[in-house]
Structure formats: C-alpha cells, structure tokens
C-alpha cells in the first residue's frame, strides 16, 4: 500500500510500530454492541432480583406509598427527549455540521442532567422518609436497579462532555465520528433500559 522512499537492504523501510491499526472495518460497532448486550445481562439480573424481591416490604413502606408517578413521568419525558435530541446530533454529524452537532449534544446533556437531578432528588426524598436501601428487600433491589441505571446515565453525561471537548479540538474526524456512534448506541440503549424501569419497577409495583 505505502511506497517506502528509502528502501533498506530488505527492500522495506524499517518500522518499529504499525502506523495503521489492523482492525477490520466497522468491527468497533459490533464490539460495542456486544458490550451493550453484556450490560443488558447485568440489568436482566437486577430486574430479576427486583421481580423476586419487589413485594417484600418487611412491614415497611410499599411501592404505592412511596412512588410519585408524576415525577416518574417527568423523568421519562426527560430521557425520551434526550434520546431524540441525540438523534438530531447524529443527523447533524452525518451532514458534517460540527456546530449543530455540538449544540444538540449540549441539549442532550442538559436533558440527561435534568434526569439524573430528578432521580437524585427522588432518592434523597426516599432516604429522608426512612425508605433507605437497608429498610426492606424491596428497597434494596429498587435502589440497586434504578441506581445502576442512574450511574450509567451519569457516565454517559461524562462521555458527552468529553466528546464535546474532543469535537471542539479535532472536529468531525473519523475517530470522533466512531466515538459519537458508540455514544449514540449507549445513550439509546439506556433509554431502552429505562422503558423497563418505568414499566416494571414503577407502574406495575404501584398497582395493588
């Protein structure tokens, strides 16, 4: 592929490192998808734990007494809006519009921060009311599942900020585009997990 200008006796320029990484085209996307699938298994285990322990209140507060569905609805709206704004960021990336991409990423980040903020506020209220993770098996499994999801979103926020700095420094080069596509999958995947959380953890638990 390359034409060495100064061939050695071997007829090849000496190279101590491989300048081009030897990886198949597009394998990053498949690898990241497999990571997401393994993450999905973590959530499956936590969902199963909640499914088993979700009604074990240990004479403590029940889901119907604790959960405020309007707040959950607002939280869901925040995450859903952040999903569509990240989609707009990807569309802007495709059209090579750096500034528009950055603006949509910033909006996505704000929605994500609103989500994490609302969730932390909810946790603080629960703990203030004595509904701590130690109170009952229901609350232990609830805090573990929802907390793990919140942690993922927080990591996603750090990723958004990091990638915005990268984009500001180096623009829409192939490496940054690849990173953006990974982050896009990560972010949409978290929204998929949240569908399970608001349906299975909040809405179904509140019934009865």
């Amino acid at each position: 592929m390359t034409h060495p200008s100064t061939p050695t006796a071997d007829g090849e320029a000496l190279a101590f490192y491989v300048a081009e990484d030897a990886h198949a085209e597009g394998s990053t996307m498949l690898g990241f998808w497999i990571y997401l699938m393994s993450d999905c298994l973590i959530f499956a285990v936590l969902f199963a734990t909640f499914g088993v322990l979700g009604r074990n209140y240990a004479a403590g507060p029940s889901a119907a007494e604790l959960f405020e569905l309007p707040t959950v609805a607002l939280n869901t709206a925040m995450l859903l809006l952040s999903s569509i704004t990240f989609g707009f960021a990807m569309l802007a990336m495709e059209k090579e519009k750096l500034r528009t991409t950055l603006v949509w990423m910033a909006i996505t980040g704000l929605f994500g921060m609103a989500f994490v903020g609302l969730e932390l506020n909810e946790f603080a209220h629960l703990i203030h009311d004595g509904a701590t993770p130690q109170r009952s098996a229901f609350l232990s499994s609830f805090f573990t599942l929802v907390g793990t999801h919140g942690l993922h979103v927080s990591v996603g926020l750090i990723w958004i900020v990091t990638l915005m700095v990268q984009l500001g420094l180096y623009g829409l080069n192939p490496a940054n585009k690849r990173r953006l596509m990974c982050l896009s999958m990560f972010w949409h995947f978290l929204d998929v997990v949240w569908i399970g959380v608001f349906s299975f953890v909040y809405l179904v638990s509140v019934l009865q």
Partner: peptide, 21 residues
Amino acid sequence: GYMTGFLLSVVLTAIPFWLVM
C-alpha cells in the same frame, strides 16, 4: 425515522401512565 420513533414512543409511554394513574 427519528420523528416516527419519537412520536410512537410518546404514545406508548403516555398510555401506560394513563392506565395506571
């Protein structure tokens, strides 16, 4: 595609909340 997904998601989120609340 994104707008279709978003509108469907809004409807599919609103219905369960309405059913429960």
